[in-house]
Design a protein around this nucleic acid. Structure first.
Lengths: 210, 210
DNA sequence: ACGCAAATAGGCCGCAAGGCCTATGGTAAC
DNA sequence: GTTACCATAGGCCTTGCGGCCTATTTGCGT
C-alpha cells in the first residue's frame, strides 16, 4: 500500500482524483490539501510516501513548496499547462516526476509506483516505457496466491452470483468443484464465507467495482 | 438513475470525475468525451439526461457546442476560470448551470439532480439553497424501504461482519433478531443471502465503499 | 522422466443460514 | 384510542454452506 497525499486548489479535481486513486488496490490516499501551506502543516504526521501536487495554487504554490521544503517525499507534479520551462523548473527544484493533467489515471498510478520505489520519471521518450513497466498494481500477497480459476469464480461472486448451483452453471463445472475452489479461496484470502470473499475481492482489485 | 455525459479535454479530470460520480448511487456516467466534436458525434445514441462540460477545450470548445447545437440536454458548465463574463456568456448560450472546478463533488451531484428535474441553477446567493435542496441522493425505492436498524445491520455486513453471532454482538441484540432483520432486508432488496445483500448495499449507497 | 500444482470430481458430516410462524413492548400516525 | 409499524425475541425445520478427506487428469518446469 503506497500512501499518497494530494495537493490541489481545485477541490473537485483533488476529491475525484483521491477517489480514483483509492479504487486502485495498492494506492492509499492519506489526505488531500487545498494549498501548500496546509500541506506543510500536516505532512509530518502522515508518513506519506509519494506526493501528488499541482503547480498553480493560491497561497503557497507548488513551486514554492518544492523550493522551500527540504525533506519532501518523492513528488509527482500533475499540472494543467505543461510547458517545457515549467517542467525543467520543477525538476530542478526537486520534483521526481511531471505529468500533464491530460494523462490517463493509469499513468498517474504507474508514476506513483515508480516514485515509491525511488525512481524519477525521465522527461524524454523513455517515459512511456517506465510507465508501462509500473502499469500493473502490486497485488496483495493474498490475492497474488489465487489461481486464475479462483479469480474467475471471485468475479462471479462479486457480481452477485452467490449460490453454488449458479456458480457451477456459469463456470461449466460441478458443484463439488465450486466448493473446492471456494474453500481454497477462503484459505488464501483469510476469510470465512462467500460474503467476505466477495467484499475482499473488490477491495483487493481482483473483481471490478461494478 | 440520472444518465450523464462528461466532456473535458483533461483526461485525468474527466476520468476521475466519472469515477467519482459513478459512486453516487443515483447518477450513472454514460460516457466521457475529450472535446465537443466527439460529443456531438455520439450524443444521439446515448439518451443522456444531463451534460457536464468544460468551457476551455481544444477543437470544438464548450462555448461553441452550446451555441451550435440546438437540442442539447440540460448542460452544467464546470470550469476552471469562472469569471462573471464567462458565466453570463454561457448561460446566455443555453447552459442550465455553472460551477467552478473548485466546488466539492457533492455540489456537482446536487446540481446534476437539479438540472435533471428541469431546473436551472441561479447565479446569485440562492445557489447554495438550491444545491442544498438537492444534496441527498434520490434513493432507489428498494433502499428507501429499509428501516434505520436494517441499514445499520447492512453497514456491518458490508464491512465484513457476516456471521449471525458477530452481528448480534456488534448491535447488542439477540441472534434471532439479527435473522429477522436479515430476512426483511432480503425481502426488500430482493436478494437471497448475506453476500448479495452486502454487495447490493454498497451499490445502492446504503453502506460506504470503504 | 519426474515431480508439482492446478482443475476437476466425489463422499461425509455438522452446524449455520434462511424460510415461516407467533408474540410483545414501544412509538408514531391519524 | 386505535391502528400500524418497528425492534425485539423465540421455535421449528430444511437446505445449503463450509470443513475435511481422497482421487484423477492435465500441464508446466527442470
Amino acid at each position: 500500500m503506497i500512501r499518497v497525499a494530494i495537493v490541489d486548489d481545485h477541490q473537485l479535481f483533488a476529491e475525484t482524483l483521491a477517489m480514483g486513486l483509492s479504487t486502485i488496490p495498492d494506492i492509499d490516499v492519506a489526505a488531500t490539501f487545498g494549498d501548500g501551506a496546509e500541506l506543510l502543516d500536516h505532512l509530518d504526521e502522515l508518513s506519506v510516501e509519494v506526493l501528488v501536487m499541482d503547480l498553480e495554487m493560491p497561497g503557497l504554490s507548488g513551486m514554492e513548496v518544492l523550493e522551500s521544503a527540504k525533506t519532501l517525499p518523492p513528488t509527482l507534479i500533475v499540472t494543467m499547462h505543461s510547458s517545457e520551462d515549467q517542467r525543467r523548473q520543477a525538476t530542478d527544484a526537486g520534483a521526481a516526476g511531471f505529468l500533464p493533467k491530460a494523462s490517463p489515471l493509469v499513468d498517474v498510478a504507474a508514476a506513483i509506483r515508480a516514485l515509491a520505489q525511488g525512481a524519477t520519471l525521465p522527461q524524454d521518450t523513455t517515459l512511456s516505457e517506465v510507465l508501462e513497466a509500473h502499469a500493473s498494481p502490486v497485488l496483495d500477497p493474498r490475492a497474488a496466491a489465487l489461481t486464475s480459476r479462483e479469480r474467475e469464480l471471485l468475479v462471479c461472486l462479486a457480481e452477485g452470483t452467490t449460490s453454488t448451483a449458479d456458480l457451477a452453471h456459469q463456470l461449466y463445472i460441478s458443484e463439488k468443484t465450486v466448493k473446492n475452489h471456494l474453500a481454497s479461496i477462503f484459505d488464501k484470502l483469510e476469510v470465512a464465507d462467500r460474503a467476505q470473499a466477495a467484499l475482499e475481492a473488490i477491495k483487493l482489485g481482483v473483481a471490478p467495482r461494478s
